[in-house]
């Protein structure tokens, strides 16, 4: 029923040629692009942190002095492999060890290399049992336990996540305000047209729908443009830093679509509310 009405009365209250409503498309596109890129990047950082966290939690390094008996070390490796919840215990080769230590020594690694055992574990590992096992072989073994570090890092990460969440929230609220101010400024300019339509007998619902559908169309355009822009931006980033690919989940792509969509919804809702308020205030 409404589509039939729109055909002819639409031109009387046409928003498409109105510069303020063109501005609305621009605002939606730009802010949608910014918000989507921002929140998508944050999500990628979160993904990066999570995968790092997972890796840290699942690895234990055991350092043994260079003068320890190699056979004893190999025995320890074998015994650790059979411990519950140990996926793999692996004695690093000299090259690998040198590689790990290189960053700490500027003039190459020339002294006898320590033994390094890399153990991959699951989160159910009984640490007490594991540690006594190692210490039984080598009382002065240093077991590199990342838990302290993880607790510290995760509290920092949680804190920055709250800040980011807060900033995203504030950003969305500001955008919503800008969008609704734009819409109401545009509608104020349509007051004469609205009044004229009322005087020939247009009902409130008819006029509100007329405005809402037009804003909806424009918001769809804004949504489309900003999602594409954000997609292109992310794609460019991925090409530039291919390492980012690891943290590029479907979830991130979904954000690029969903965030601008939310902004469009805000535009449509505020258009509807503003139109309603304005039209009902006119007789």
């Amino acid at each position: 029923m409404f589509a039939r009405h729109a055909h002819s009365a639409k031109k009387a209250i046409s928003l498409h040629k109105d510069s303020i409503f063109r501005l609305l498309i621009l605002i939606l596109s730009l802010l949608g692009w910014l918000c989507a890129s921002f929140i998508a990047s944050i999500t990628m950082l979160e993904n990066a942190y999570n995968s790092w966290n997972l890796e840290q939690k699942s690895h234990i390094s055991i350092y043994l002095d260079a003068d320890e008996n190699r056979g004893k070390v190999v025995n320890l490796v074998e015994e650790l492999s059979s411990v519950n919840n140990v996926k793999r215990a692996y004695l690093l080769s000299e090259y690998e060890t040198a590689d790990i230590l290189k960053p700490y020594f500027s003039e190459g690694v020339s002294f006898p290399l320590p033994f390094v055992i890399d153990v991959t574990v699951t989160s159910q590992l009984d640490r007490e049992y594991f540690n006594t096992k190692v210490n039984k072989y080598f009382a002065n073994a240093s077991i590199d336990d990342a838990r302290d570090l993880l607790v510290k890092v995760s509290s920092i990460v949680r804190f920055s996540q709250w800040i980011i969440l807060f900033i995203s929230g504030v950003l969305l609220i500001i955008v919503a305000i800008i969008v609704s101010l734009t819409v109401s400024a545009g509608l104020r300019g349509k007051q004469i047209s609205l009044k004229t339509m009322q005087h020939i007998g247009a009902q409130d619902k008819f006029l509100i729908n007329l405005i809402t559908t037009q804003v909806m169309q424009q918001s769809l355009i804004g949504w489309f443009i900003s999602s594409i822009l954000a997609g292109v931006t992310l794609y460019a980033l991925l090409n530039y830093w291919s390492g980012l690919n690891l943290y590029m989940t479907n979830y991130v792509w979904a954000i690029i679509v969903i965030v601008p969509f939310l902004l469009s919804i805000v535009a449509v809702i505020s258009a509807k509310l503003t139109a309603k308020r304005m039209i009902k205030s006119m007789l």
Partner: peptide, 22 residues
């Protein structure tokens, strides 16, 4: 009581457009 962005014919036909296309 005319709308400036509508031409003469569109202004005149406006009251008939509330019920759809004339």
């Amino acid at each position: 009581g005319l709308l400036n962005h509508l031409n003469v014919r569109e202004n005149v036909s406006l009251p008939l457009t509330l019920h759809g296309k004339p």
